[in-house]
Design a binder for these strands. Sequence first.
DNA 1: AGGTCGACCTGGCAGC
DNA 2: TGCTGCCAGGTCGACC
Length: 268
Amino acid sequence: MPELPEVETIVRDLNKSLRGKIFSDVIVHDAFLLRQQQKDFIGRIKGLAIEKIARRGKAVIVHLSSGEFLVIQLMMTGQLIADGQQDKHTRLTFNFSDGSALLYNDQRRFGQLRVVADLSEIKHFNILGPEPFSKEFTPALISEKFRKTVRPVKNVLLDHTFVAGIGNIYACEILYRGQVNPRRQARRLTQAEVKTIHQKTIEVLKEAIDHRGCSMRNYRDGLGQVGLFKERLAVYARQGLPCPRCHQPIRRITQSGRGTFYCGHCQK
DNA sequence: AGGTCGACCTGGCAGC
DNA sequence: TGCTGCCAGGTCGACC
């Protein structure tokens, strides 16, 4: 599933193509995706215009002309495709009054869609840490969080209450760029390393957005296209291949049940 | 309270 | 070919 750069790419694309469009109908092919919605999902969308599309963490937020919000959690395999071909993974179709359509596809059905009057109704948003590009995300904040935990730094980067939007791919790439071993206890990092983590987090995420994210198995951007950042991944899913920096083989370990990829030679 | 683990669900792939 | 087991980008709740 998409992490912050992929969701940001989708949101930017959809803003260009969908802003101002009016929902003429919503077809639910798989009601399981609406399991969080109490009732009247379609009724709270139909006939309304899209004012804009935004992002918080990895969630897509469609601002409706009623003042309500359509919140879409893509999770691992969700895709929002404007004017694509419906297939067996198409779970919802949003039709617009101009004849165009937006498809929500989701192979694993982990995704969820809800309409809320207030974003605080989404529990997840209330515990989410700062956006990495916001002014709240500072070396001082990282330092404070790191000091209070015994966890490995990789697990802390993945923790969405620490900072929003970083998933497994970018956690690995940030640590590689910062030359920090993912198994190090966060509290043991030096001030210089904390500063590096801060800088590399922003650098990697911005670069990934510039390249329209990266496609592993299922990611597609808002135009149904694959992302280009995959070519620039140094460690993720590259176990056994040479490290771009020192040419030693990349290692794969498991941390809290998730794969971690790193160079044991140049990540200290 | 903080941290880990399994569950959620589907499908691709490697190995036999 | 067909089976089994493992793996996958996220998040939540149960449990230690």
